[in-house]
Structures are given as structure tokens and as C-alpha cells.
């Protein structure tokens, strides 16, 4: 392999990991939520809220505040979802769509220059407010991990990325371990498979579901923060472009396992970077719309392939989407 093609491979893999991290953080969280029996279609709107929060908080107080703030905003939206879907036992699909709507509307409104300016002014008056009108924030710095970053391929793909890329992988590993190897994980899975039985065994179904939805939502908030400060630090309307919904479908592709979610997310990160790579080779340079369809079309094709491979019997949690009520 020549040096040139090696560095081309490196570049592609590095950008696949970089783009895939958006999906990874969000879909790992959704894995946990769904394993507890709740489907959260609010991911799209929560990601958008995470992104706008990180935009304004980065300008006001820096990156750390931005990430924590995005997680907190995500958790608040998760609390709302859990109240409606777990306590009031409303249809999870409709609840999720409403949450998405709220997140997209609110984030679009907050991102408008005149509103963003006022928000920044009221959050931290010491920072010049016009900064918010520029729609940009400093990107998360690359973290060069010595001496691993001088490894061939891996050095550039994994060890010269920003901290949220690593946090994404580590979160996936930790959550996989908790889910499959601990008592907590067992309780959570039992709530998703057979809540009545879990309830009889002394597991608090409501509390587990609340925590699972809130955890998944706050990770979606962080995914939104990563999308903005880690990937594309320029605010546009509809920044998320359905990535939250793609993350939900990646949970199916990874058959509800946080470990397989890593592979699925990077795969789709690769698809996303094709959008920028193919026009460089001359095809669709002027009208990139056909190539921009790729993630959407490939998501649909993936769903078909999964269905064919599993012969229509997906390993979904048995109680997924079903509200639980104690017959009192």
C-alpha cells in the first residue's frame, strides 16, 4: 500500500469516526431506553436542544459548561417524556413526536440571531452579545494522546480526535457492561421484557423506566452538543437533519446492544462522510442533492436488510412501546 492511499484511508476512517460519534452517543442512550421498554422518538428534538444549548453556553462559559448544560437540558426533556409516557401512560410514539416538535421549534427559535443575542446577554453579560449573531462557536480542541497518536492509521483515526469521541466509546463500553453483566442491568432488561414479572420480583418498574428515559435523553443532548461544538460549529436551521431518527433506527441495526451500536454508528458516520467525499471526485459537485440523499436511502435499505436477515423476527424487548400499569 502506498503512503498516499494509506493516508486517504486514514482520512476516511477518521472522518467516519468523527461523524459517527453523533450517532454513537445518541443511539447508545436509546439502546438503554428501549431495553427498559420505552421508545424515545424525541431524540431528534432533544439533539437539536443539546446543540443550541452548547452553542450559547460555549460562548458564555466554555466547552465544559456547554456539554454539561446540554446533558441537563436533555434530562429535562427526558423527564417530560417519562412523565407523559410512563406516568400518564400515553402513546410513546405520539409523545416522542411531540417532544421532537418542541425541541426543533424551541431550538430554531433560540438560534435566531436576535433571540440568541439576548440569551447570551442574559446568561453572561460579560461576553459581547454580538458573538451569538455570528452563529459560530470555537470547536472542541483535538486531543492528541501521546504516544498513541503516532501509531499508523489508529493514531489518526482514534487518538487525534476530541474528547467526546473517546467519551462516546467509553460510555458505550460502560453501558454495555452494566446492561449485560450487573444486577442493575438485569433489572433494567427485565423491565423491558416483562414488567409485571419484574414488579413482582421487587423491581420498581416506574423508577427504572424514568431513569432509562432520562439517561437516554441526556445522552441525546450530549450528542447534540457534539454535533455542534465537536463536528460542525456553525449554527443553521434544522442542524440535526433527521440524525436523531437515524440514531433510533441504528438501535435496530445494532439489535439493542450498546457494543454493536459502536460499529453501526461508525458505519453510518462513513455514509455521512461519503456526501463530502464523492463530490470531490467530480460527481455531483454542483448539485450535491442526490448524494445528500444517501444517509436516508441507506437507512431504509438497512431496515429492509435487517428484516430479511432476521426473517421478520427482531430481537426487540418484548414490552417495547407498551405502557405499564399495575392492576390496582
Amino acid at each position: 500500500m502506498t503512503v498516499e492511499s494509506l493516508s486517504f484511508l486514514e482520512a476516511i476512517l477518521a472522518s467516519a469516526v468523527s461523524a459517527g460519534t453523533i450517532y454513537l452517543i445518541a443511539s447508545v442512550g436509546e439502546c438503554i431506553t428501549e431495553r427498559a421498554g420505552v421508545i424515545n422518538l424525541g431524540l431528534e428534538g432533544i439533539m437539536a436542544m443539546g446543540a443550541i444549548t452548547s452553542f450559547i453556553l460555549t460562548l458564555a462559559y466554555g466547552h465544559l459548561a456547554a456539554i454539561l448544560g446540554a446533558a441537563l437540558v436533555g434530562a429535562v426533556f427526558g423527564l417530560l417524556h417519562a412523565f407523559l409516557s410512563v406516568s400518564l401512560r400515553l402513546n410513546q410514539i405520539v409523545v416522542g413526536l411531540a417532544i421532537t416538535w418542541l425541541g426543533l421549534g424551541l431550538s430554531g427559535f433560540m438560534g435566531a440571531p436576535e433571540v440568541a443575542r439576548e440569551l447570551l446577554k442574559s446568561i453572561n453579560p460579560a461576553v459581547p452579545a454580538f458573538l451569538a449573531e455570528l452563529k459560530q462557536a470555537p470547536r472542541l480542541p483535538e486531543l492528541k494522546i501521546e504516544p498513541l497518536n503516532s501509531l499508523p492509521v489508529l493514531g489518526r483515526v482514534l487518538f487525534s480526535q476530541n474528547i467526546l469521541v473517546h467519551a462516546g466509546i467509553i460510555t458505550a463500553l460502560i453501558l454495555w457492561f452494566i446492561l449485560t453483566r450487573t444486577r442493575w442491568g438485569l433489572s433494567l432488561r427485565s423491565v423491558g421484557e416483562n414488567p409485571a414479572l419484574a414488579d413482582t420480583a421487587g423491581v420498581n418498574v416506574f423508577a427504572v423506566r424514568y431513569l432509562a428515559v432520562i439517561l437516554g435523553s441526556s445522552l441525546a443532548g450530549v450528542a447534540g452538543a457534539y454535533l455542534f461544538i465537536g463536528y460542525q460549529p456553525f449554527w443553521v436551521e434544522d442542524l440535526t437533519r433527521s440524525r436523531g431518527f437515524i440514531a433510533v433506527s441504528l438501535v435496530i441495526l445494532s439489535s439493542w446492544s450498546p457494543l454493536r451500536a459502536i460499529a453501526a454508528a461508525y458505519l453510518f458516520g462513513g455514509v455521512e462522510t461519503l456526501q463530502f467525499r464523492i463530490p470531490l471526485r467530480g460527481f455531483g459537485a454542483e448539485t450535491p442533492q442526490l448524494i445528500m440523499m444517501l444517509p436516508y436511502v441507506i437507512t431504509i435499505v438497512t431496515l429492509i436488510l435487517i428484516s430479511l436477515a432476521s426473517r421478520g423476527r427482531l430481537p426487540a424487548p418484548a414490552a417495547l412501546g407498551k405502557p405499564y400499569s399495575r392492576e390496582e
Partner: peptide
């Protein structure tokens, strides 16, 4: 901003399901 009405719509959506 235009997305202002989207917020009202989201609230109507939430109100509908509640």
C-alpha cells in the same frame, strides 16, 4: 423568528396528547 409559531404548535401537540 418564523420558528416562533412552531413552539405554539408543539404546545398544541402536547396539549392534544395530554
Amino acid at each position: 423568528p418564523k420558528s416562533g409559531v412552531e413552539i405554539i404548535m408543539a404546545m398544541i401537540f402536547l396539549a392534544t396528547i395530554v
